[in-house]
Design a protein around this nucleic acid. Structure first.
Lengths: 145, 145
DNA sequence: TATTGTTATACTCTATAACTATA
DNA sequence: TATAGTTATAGAGTATAACAATA
């Protein structure tokens, strides 16, 4: 009767397409550029302002240990800096350095720009609207799992 | 009128939602279910019919060696079978077994999946149609990057 | 010589467990 | 006892390099 897709079909289709897209995004990694998790953490730190490793880990939905590794890499490249919280000796407060902010600008042009280029070249406005409408649904789905 | 989303917005939105969703899909690993690459390969093999490991690797945009590992896991679970190509002794032809098809088609199996469960619980039929429509677009995007 | 597939090895990203320091 | 962070280790998923078999 109705053409409502059954949830199994939708789930299967999404798994295939999401896997493909993520792999491509990771493969685009270039010498000297940030990795995907590094970029993600740096962007979030820049947007949200100084915060702690644990807080960043929660936002990115990964373990504090994993976030620690990512942050160590960012610090080693001088893109973030750490200082102890004066109120609480257990805490460390992270902030983006000037170099980090510069890198972010390059970064957006490099990766997001590449995605944007592919979208512009190969998709109609109607298709772009479809993708735009799907994005928040995907995000909601990620939080519902 | 011009509500056409600009490509930069779409790119940014997709990147965030895809990253989050992928992480959740990998984190929530359920006993007995397929991993993401396994599921992706099996779905594709079922859709496209019998083919070779190299061809599957190309479609999934990963190396033949990586696809080999995934296929070995699927074969070990009896979900795909391999036979030599009679015309070309170098080639191996893969096909989905009955068990593999059951895994893909069985509604109870599909419903038991983490993704499908979340879809069923939290999304309207209209939203499911939106997600279903977005899947091939995401796939095309992955190939266009 | 080129192609298909396999084996060996390593890197990235993530996890869990166990630890230290501070609250 | 609870929390923030670190260190150690492991596993999944991917890559490249080197190889064997076949064309």
């Amino acid at each position: 009767m109705s053409e409502d897709p059954n949830v199994g079909q939708v789930a299967a289709a999404l798994r295939v397409s999401i896997g493909l897209l993520l792999r491509r995004l990771r493969q685009v990694r270039v010498e000297g550029e940030l990795t995907l998790p590094e970029s993600s953490a740096l962007v979030r730190l820049d947007r949200g302002g100084p915060t702690t490793p644990s807080e960043l880990a929660k936002l990115e939905q990964i373990s504090p240990q994993s976030m620690g590794a990512t942050l160590a890499a960012l610090q080693a490249r001088g893109l973030v800096e750490r200082r102890p919280d004066p109120q609480d000796g257990r805490r460390v407060v992270l902030s983006v350095t000037g170099a980090g902010r510069d890198m972010l600008l390059d970064k957006r042009n490099a990766r997001a720009g590449q995605l944007a280029q592919a979208l512009e070249a190969g998709f109609t406005p109607a298709e772009l609207r479809q993708l735009m409408a799907a994005a928040p649904l995907l995000e909601r789905l990620a939080q519902a799992i």
